[in-house]
Design a protein around this nucleic acid. Sequence first.
DNA 1: GATGAATGAGATTTCATTCAT
DNA 2: TATGAATGAAATCTCATTCAT
Lengths: 225, 225, 225, 225
Amino acid sequence: MTGSQRRSRGKKAAEQAEPVATGTPASQRELRAQGRRTMGKLLDAGMKVFAERGYHAARVDDIVRAARTSHGTFYLYFTNKEDLLRALAVRCADELDALAEHIGPITADDAGLAEVRAFLAGFLDVYERYGPVIRAWMEGQVSDREVNRLGLRAFMRIGNRLRERMREAGGADRAELDARVGVLMAMLERFNYFYSSRDLGLDREATLDTLARIAHRGFFEAAAA
Amino acid sequence: MTGSQRRSRGKKAAEQAEPVATGTPASQRELRAQGRRTMGKLLDAGMKVFAERGYHAARVDDIVRAARTSHGTFYLYFTNKEDLLRALAVRCADELDALAEHIGPITADDAGLAEVRAFLAGFLDVYERYGPVIRAWMEGQVSDREVNRLGLRAFMRIGNRLRERMREAGGADRAELDARVGVLMAMLERFNYFYSSRDLGLDREATLDTLARIAHRGFFEAAAA
Amino acid sequence: MTGSQRRSRGKKAAEQAEPVATGTPASQRELRAQGRRTMGKLLDAGMKVFAERGYHAARVDDIVRAARTSHGTFYLYFTNKEDLLRALAVRCADELDALAEHIGPITADDAGLAEVRAFLAGFLDVYERYGPVIRAWMEGQVSDREVNRLGLRAFMRIGNRLRERMREAGGADRAELDARVGVLMAMLERFNYFYSSRDLGLDREATLDTLARIAHRGFFEAAAA
Amino acid sequence: MTGSQRRSRGKKAAEQAEPVATGTPASQRELRAQGRRTMGKLLDAGMKVFAERGYHAARVDDIVRAARTSHGTFYLYFTNKEDLLRALAVRCADELDALAEHIGPITADDAGLAEVRAFLAGFLDVYERYGPVIRAWMEGQVSDREVNRLGLRAFMRIGNRLRERMREAGGADRAELDARVGVLMAMLERFNYFYSSRDLGLDREATLDTLARIAHRGFFEAAAA
DNA sequence: GATGAATGAGATTTCATTCAT
DNA sequence: TATGAATGAAATCTCATTCAT
């Protein structure tokens, strides 16, 4: 439970960019087909177990059991439980970046609404898959700086994109935009959190419709109104 | 294993209406002055340590050290770290309830704005003091059902009060109100979280002003506009 | 559970026959009415709790709770949990001695059978009341020499009396008598143990009849037959 | 608290016919040579320490020290001290069953006497090796139902076999047989207990001779006489 | 006499990580 | 590459006994 802040060799191994010999328990190494398969299994298992138990409560043992592999193998691919989280965080950040990339202009008409809805759907989708990772970011459960930075950057990228789209939509000064972005992101994160963690029996599509309408009106169309 | 065949306090306490004997590691017991003082010290220490380390990372050892008492004493008052959290949660829920109670009508004028600001200030205040407890609720870190229920109920009470005030402010149907409440609460929680956990150098009063303005305009005056 | 062999001050206090000042946590002291009452409550509570949980599992806490008194009070009357056991052992040994005293001649006729039955009934009675104490003797759970000696002596006294009665009944040499006594005592103890610990639904009177018949025939009448 | 939401081994083991993963702190697992060796060491150490200190007083720490292994390792093989006892109990029950199996017909002649003696020798042998386990049964020190059942069943199996042999020897009705079996078993258990726990300087062979003679005459030949 | 409170040594248990094969 | 086994530091919890009113 609290035992995660013991050894700290992991960080060392990550910081030193030294040539990785075989047997080095780091994750950057040339992997053959089998190796890639095993690593994949571990990543998947990590997602699953983090989702079930949360990052903290997840034991390495749970993960290797879920991956149908052994303890030793885990440390062949990751230095740490944290290292595994880091790997997942990278994946998640990539997906969020892609999401940010795809946010098109948000007009005041139905096309704009559709755009907002598409973005929200994408975000919810990522959140559903990477919930535990994102939660670990938000809740600062992780001591590892890098992981937190990753999360912050990914969120900021989305935030910046949204700010840009709001700016295009017009009628708000810099400070107002900052505030709106902050509120929207906070709202988004929390909503997704509740949606994907507690099972409140909401209809996904309907919920997205409502959310999109609120966001569209409240954050983009507001000035126009 | 061996701890399970103990205690029949429940029955006893029912049969005899006298104060339960010493040694009962529960928190409901007749306490003398000294006992109350010690319990207070432990509660305070719990707040402090949870704040510093987070609920999970906090060790009972840290808490008793902070309370300048012994390990054994802790278990004289609480069965668990969780039990301590529960006690704090009750306190916090009480304060939140009191807060909900005091939310007056929110008019469209400056008086309404002041009311909103007062509420937000109260909320931030509670959050600053009980942050770790509330976070433990929100993040579902606690397995204990009761604790989670406590948190949920306290939040709902505030939410309901706010909905009522919005309804009075007029111009929104049931669904709209639900949505607004959800968004407002999410926003509130997340904002307070960031404000009180990370130390982003914000000026408290100015921040409250801004937040109050946004909330007043966005959630209460909206229909009027 | 295993914590009983910690401090060993108890023994010291018992070995030294020094004048007992008031406040001395020993059990030999002039007691007023109230004191005797409290001590009685503790002894009774001890019996009860030892019976329920067994000597080892019994916690001082359970005992004081059962006696409706406090921790501090316990140590005002006994130096130890073991000291309490010792006190009970003395009582029990006294009753066994009285029992031995009353074993009359055992003839081959019905009068002899009745005598055997009376003895068995008496023994069962003591066992039912002092079971845990006797068990603590038999099972050598107690490190305290004195307690064990007490038990041994009490059993031997009964054994000797029975040997004497067997000898009178005639037809057995010394070795044979020794063997019979040993077997009879073992049988007796074990039987009573099972009878009073497990609740096998036996009828008390019928069981005593059978047991008496077996013992009478097997141990006293044997040579005659 | 946290230990309870773990392990779903049962299900797993059923779904997949492969060996359960490491880390499962149970004793039913595919073990390699080394694992079997370690488990053996722990079982042996358990026997030794239970014998020296008794089940209750034995600390896991003593056991791992005796087995020259680590604390963690113990919990890799057994969930508990009790779990270790259970494992030993199974072994012991098996040996007792084998013993019961081998009790041949008990005739009134010297062959019968030899048979009785062989059985008694076997029983004493098992008792000498598994004394602490059997004592834990008899003294009901263990809360675990299963362990107690094991012991009861093993004893009953022997008892039933003996009853059968007595019945063949003839001349006793059902009730009489029940009584004899009860007495014989009680006597046996207690005798062995005293013999193997206290070191009363008895000659093993001579003692067995005497005991065999008594038992043969008293329980099997009695009716014939 | 009586009591509630405090203590702290010691026992159990967990789990991330390393090792030997 | 893969694996089962081992480790041990750290955390939790218990309870006999002492202390201060």
